[in-house]
Measured scan of single mutants.
Amino acid sequence: NKFNKELQWATWEILNLPNLNEEQVKAFIDSLKDDPSQSANLLAEAKKLNDAQA
C-alpha cells in the first residue's frame, strides 16, 4: 500500500543521512513506525536537522 512504500522510502532516506547521530535516527524511525502517515513530514524534519548539523 501507499503508506508502506512511503514508510520504506523515508526509513531508507533517514538511515542514510550522514549528520544524524544514532539516537536521532532511532527517534525518527520510531516516530515513523508510530505514525506512517507522517512519513513525508518526518523525512523533511530529519533532512532539516541533518542540514543544520552539517
Rank of each mutant, 00 (worst) to 15 (best):
N19R: 03
Q53H: 04
A52K: 12
L7M: 11
N19H: 13
S37I: 05
K2V: 08
L42F: 06
L32A: 05
L42E: 01
E6T: 05
N41V: 09
A10W: 04
K26N: 12
A54N: 10
D35G: 03
I29K: 02
K2Y: 07
D30F: 06
A27M: 12
P18M: 09
L7D: 04
E45I: 06
L17I: 01
K2T: 04
Q24N: 02
K26Y: 07
K47H: 10
I14V: 04
S39F: 15
I29E: 02
E6K: 03
V25N: 01
W9A: 11
L49A: 05
A52F: 09
N4D: 15
E22M: 12
E23Y: 12
K5V: 06
A44S: 08
P18K: 12
A54W: 07
A40H: 09
N4V: 09
L7V: 10
L32R: 00
Q38K: 10
A46D: 00
S39A: 13
N16P: 00
I29H: 03
S37P: 03
N21Y: 10
E13S: 05
E23M: 09
F3L: 15
L42P: 01
Q24R: 01
I29S: 02
I29Y: 03
S37A: 13
I29W: 03
L17R: 00
L17F: 06
V25L: 05
L20G: 00
S37N: 07
Q38D: 10
Q8H: 04
N1M: 01
K2F: 10
K2S: 15
D51P: 01
A10H: 05
A27H: 12
N1E: 15
L17W: 02
N50V: 01
S37K: 07
A54H: 08
K47N: 06
A46H: 00
A27R: 14
D34W: 11
V25W: 03
A40N: 07
L49V: 13
L20Y: 00
A52M: 14
D35I: 05
Q8F: 09
L20H: 00
W9D: 12
E45M: 12
V25Y: 05
K5D: 15
Q38V: 05
A54V: 09
E23F: 13
E45W: 05
A52D: 11
A27S: 11
K47M: 08
L17N: 01
E45N: 09
S39T: 09
D34S: 12
K26L: 09
W12I: 14
W9F: 13
N16G: 11
Q24F: 02
K2H: 15
V25F: 03
A27P: 02
K26V: 07
E13I: 11
S31T: 10
N4L: 14
A52N: 11
D51V: 09
L49Y: 04
N1H: 04
L43W: 04
F3R: 15
P18I: 13
L17V: 00
L43S: 02
I29L: 12
L15S: 11
D51R: 10
K47A: 05
E6V: 07
A52Q: 13
L15A: 09
L7R: 01
N41G: 08
E45S: 07
P18Q: 09
K26F: 09
D35L: 05
K5T: 10
Q24H: 03
A27F: 14
N21E: 08
A46F: 02
L7N: 02
F28L: 05
L20A: 00
F3E: 15
L7S: 03
F3A: 15
L42N: 02
L32G: 01
L15M: 13
S31Y: 10
N21K: 09
F28W: 03
D30Y: 06
I14Y: 02
A10F: 15
A44Y: 14
K33I: 15
D51W: 11
L32W: 02
L32D: 00
W9T: 08
K5E: 15
E13N: 06
W12F: 11
L42D: 00
K48G: 09
A46R: 00
L43V: 15
A44E: 06
L43P: 01
K48M: 13
L20M: 02
D34K: 09
V25E: 02
E23K: 11
E13H: 07
E6H: 08
K33R: 10
N41K: 13
W9M: 11
K33F: 15
N21W: 10
K2D: 15
E6I: 14
L20K: 00
L43T: 04
V25T: 09
L15R: 06
I14P: 01
A27V: 11
E22F: 11
E13M: 11
S37T: 14
E6F: 14
N1A: 03
A44R: 06
K33Y: 15
N50T: 01
N19T: 04
E22V: 11
E23T: 05
S39N: 08
A46P: 00
F28R: 00
A54I: 09
P18F: 06
E45R: 06
L49I: 08
A54P: 06
I29R: 02
N16R: 07
K33P: 02
P18R: 07
N1W: 00
Q24L: 03
Q53K: 06
K47R: 13
P18W: 05
A54E: 10
N19A: 11
L49K: 04
W12S: 14
A44M: 11
A27E: 10
E45L: 09
N16W: 04
A54M: 10
E13Y: 13
D35K: 08
P18E: 11
W9N: 08
L49T: 06
P36M: 07
D34I: 10
K2W: 14
P18L: 09
